[in-house]
Amino acid sequence: MIAILSESPVDAPGIESLLDEAFGPRRRMKTAERLREGRKPADGLALVAVSSAGLIGTVRLWEVDAGGVPALLLGPVAVRCDWQGQGIGGRLVRTALKRAEMAGHKAVILVGDAPYYGRFGFGRDVVAGLALPGPVDPQRFLGLELEPGALSGANGLVRGTGAPQTAVPGAALVDMDRVAVPGYRF
């Protein structure tokens, strides 16, 4: 059984290891990282996939200003290599987008593979007036309007706007949601 759950502080080391495995040592040099660094993911929009093998996937969304329009930045999405090809990444993305829509967010942007993200409705047209704070292949800069027309007035530079990342002394490291997942390793 695979469960999609909200990320917990106990997941942090596993997520970092998974992202290093998936994207390599240069992952922190990417343009999208400039929008994420020093910030927390959007509330309720950092998810993990877990199985009896433990943490097997992750996705996060981040608050951004997309040329004057509030939006979310999706990514990174990663699935452990021995679990790829089973639809886990797709489940993570669909769940994250549904949660974003339910929370009232209206638009999501990302830097990623157009054929992969196109199946979720992402495309180039809605981000045509936007620019990222660093080099990126324009064919990989994509957007999705969760509400039609949400990005119609977006023009200019995308910048990170989410809450700053801070350590919370004495924060609980056990997420009780995990108790319901048979075989989950803490």
Score class of each variant (00 low, 15 high):
V108Q: 03
G57P: 05
P115A: 12
E101M: 10
A150M: 07
A114D: 13
D125T: 08
P115K: 12
L55H: 08
L55T: 11
Y116D: 08
G121N: 09
E101A: 12
L144C: 15
P148W: 07
P148H: 04
E21N: 05
G57H: 04
L151K: 01
L47M: 06
G90P: 02
I56Q: 05
A107V: 03
G54D: 01
R124T: 00
V59F: 06
R140L: 09
W62C: 00
P41W: 01
G90K: 01
L144W: 08
F23L: 15
V158W: 01
E145M: 06
V93R: 00
V126K: 01
V50E: 15
R91W: 08
I109R: 09
Y116I: 09
R94P: 06
R60Q: 15
L151P: 01
Y117E: 11
L151I: 03
V108M: 04
L55W: 13
M29R: 11
L18S: 02
R39M: 00
V158Y: 01
I56G: 04
G75M: 14
F141Y: 04
R36N: 14
P148D: 08
L92D: 04
Q84A: 10
L19I: 12
R119L: 08
V77C: 06
G156V: 04
R36L: 07
I88D: 03
A128S: 15
E21V: 03
L157K: 05
D82Q: 14
F23A: 14
L97D: 08
A66K: 15
D82W: 14
V136F: 15
D20V: 11
D125M: 10
R34V: 03
D20L: 11
L144R: 07
Q139Y: 13
P41V: 04
D125Q: 10
K106L: 12
A53T: 12
R26V: 12
G121H: 10
G134M: 05
H105Y: 05
D65L: 07
L157R: 06
G87S: 01
W62S: 00
A32I: 10
L73T: 01
R124H: 01
G104P: 13
A22F: 05
T95S: 03
R119P: 09
L55Q: 09
P115F: 15
S152R: 11
V158N: 01
D65H: 08
G129N: 15
L45Q: 05
R124F: 01
A53D: 13
G134Q: 06
V93N: 00
W83S: 09
A154P: 02
A96C: 06
R99Y: 11
E145D: 14
I88A: 03
Q86A: 10
